[in-house]
Amino acid sequence: MIKRFFTSAVHGAVRKCKVVFSNRKAVLGGAIMLFFVLLAVFGPILFPYNPVTDENSKYLAPGAGHWLGTDNLGRDVFRQLVHGSRDVLTIALLTSVITIILGTVLGMVSGLAGGVTDRVIGVITNLFLSIPSFPVLLIFASFFTIEDPVSFALVLSLWSWAGLSRAIRAQIHSLKERDFIQICRVMNLSRAHIIFSELMPNIASYILINFIMIMRNAITGSVGIMMLGLAAFQPSNWGAMLLRAKDSGALLIPEASYFLFAPIVAIMLFQMGSILLAHGLDEALNPRLQA
């Protein structure tokens, strides 16, 4: 059963890849994302970061030695950025994975089971949607000392699954009434077949697009928490860099602008890549937009 699900998924994926590759937005966005992934994996090996401070070389302008200049303590900004990308991306990726699993499973169970299960999950989802997420993130960040990307990702995903779960429940609800599912029921096909071979392919692209968008939100959220100084575990993380730039008065010192703008541009590029990829995938895969 699972094997058949995968072969049909692979066939479908090959077909869809052709559609995706003909969409310019998706290709551009995907290239940017790929660049960041490569940077996170190989960057720290190619450009090792030296955290030793040097008072004499602070706020240097960009040059051959320091591609993006130096920070308030004389350390190379570009290498910090590369070094920090690993953590930023790990947090984003893990948050996305956990959120997608939570949201999809709860949404599907709620949509398929109906009855009391549906009601209970609905009330819990309501609760999570009613309490604003960023303040709760701040509270959790102070309750559990965040020291590594994994706990950061757990905190971030705890409050981000509810919207996805509700959307998936609605999709399952409308799919359930459609003819092909009804026929499966009449043919007495197993529940596993209905879930993996019939429902999953229909919501896969939606989940994929959400995966990218949640990554994007995770970066906004994690950088924000770091900027408020509530989870400073890794000084080269982009949010921690911004916090240091802000606190050391880089906003007021013109020479320090590279230190301030380097992380902002890095965040912008990553977000841009994710927006383009998500929009492109939506255009290529969403059947409603193809008409």
Partner: peptide, 23 residues
């Protein structure tokens, strides 16, 4: 829309402070 959406609003705040408030 793509460019403005790529930077979180609080970072836009920092950019605006830098450009209109300091420069």
């Amino acid at each position: 829309i793509v460019v403005s959406g790529s930077i979180p609003d609080y970072l836009w705040g920092m950019i605006l402070i830098f450009v209109f408030g300091v420069r």
